[in-house]
Simulated assay, not measured.
Amino acid sequence: MTAEQHLAALRRINRRAELWDEGGRPLVYLPSMQIQHNGGTITADGLLCPRNHGSYTTRLFLSQPFPNRGQNWTVHQIMGLAWHTMSFNYVSELLPWTEILAIHLGQLK
C-alpha cells in the first residue's frame, strides 16, 4: 500500500488524520484521539511513526504520557512539538498502519 492508501484507512478511524513528512519519513498526525485507558477514555493527540525511529521498528507518540501504562516514557521533539512515548518495540513496519496503531494503543488499555 502507498502512504496515501494507508492514510485513507486511518481516516476511517480519525477523519482528521494528516500525513506529515519528517526528513523523508512519513508521520501521521492523529488529533483528538479517543484512547481507552484504565477503564475510561482519554482524549490526546497522536503521532504515528510507521517506520523505524531510533532503535524502534515503529512508534506511537502522544501529546501526554500515560505513566501507569507502558514502561520507560520519554519525551521527543518532533516537528517542533514535545511528544511522549513509551518503550514498546517490534511492531512491524510491514503491517497496515491501522494495525500498527491498534497494537500500540493496546498497550494503554
Results as ranks from 00 to 15, higher is better:
A3F: 04
G23N: 14
H37I: 00
N72R: 15
N14G: 05
Q5P: 02
Q36G: 13
R69D: 00
F88L: 15
T43R: 11
T85I: 02
K109M: 14
E18V: 09
Q77D: 15
F61H: 02
N38D: 15
T2W: 05
G106Q: 14
H37W: 12
I103F: 03
G46P: 04
V75H: 06
P67G: 12
R12C: 07
L47H: 07
S55V: 12
G106M: 14
Q36F: 13
P26S: 06
L108M: 15
E18Q: 14
L27K: 01
M1S: 11
I100K: 00
F88N: 12
P65N: 14
Y29E: 09
F66D: 00
P26L: 03
P50D: 04
L105Q: 09
L10D: 01
G23W: 11
L94Q: 15
V91G: 03
P31Q: 07
A17P: 02
E18S: 08
P67I: 14
S55F: 11
T57Y: 13
R11L: 03
A82F: 08
L19R: 13
D21W: 06
L60W: 02
E93N: 10
W83Q: 01
L48N: 01
W97M: 01
G24I: 04
T58E: 02
L60D: 00
N68D: 15
W97I: 00
L47I: 11
A102H: 06
R11F: 04
M79G: 07
I103Q: 09
N38H: 13
W83D: 00
L95I: 04
Q64W: 06
E99T: 11
E99C: 04
F88M: 13
G39D: 11
L27M: 09
F61M: 04
V91W: 02
Y29M: 11
M33Q: 12
S63W: 04
S32L: 14
P26T: 06
L19H: 11
L101I: 06
L47D: 05
A44Y: 07
H104D: 01
M79H: 09
G46D: 05
A3M: 06
N14D: 09
L62K: 00
W97T: 00
Q36Y: 09
D21R: 06
S87W: 13
I42S: 04
L81F: 10
R15W: 08
A102Y: 04
G54L: 09
N14M: 07
I100N: 00
I103H: 02
S87M: 09
A8T: 07
R25S: 13
T85R: 03
T43H: 08
A9K: 07
D45T: 08
Q77H: 14
I100A: 00
Q5R: 06
N68G: 09
T57C: 10
L27T: 01
C49G: 05
P31L: 07
A9Q: 10
P26D: 05
Y29A: 11
A17N: 03
N14K: 11
G80T: 10
Q36V: 15
Q5W: 03
C49Y: 02
T58I: 04
A3K: 05
L60E: 00
F66R: 00
T85D: 10
Y29R: 13
M79K: 10
L95F: 06
G106S: 12
P31C: 07
E99A: 08
F88Q: 14
Y29L: 12
N68H: 14
I42R: 10
R11K: 13
L48P: 00
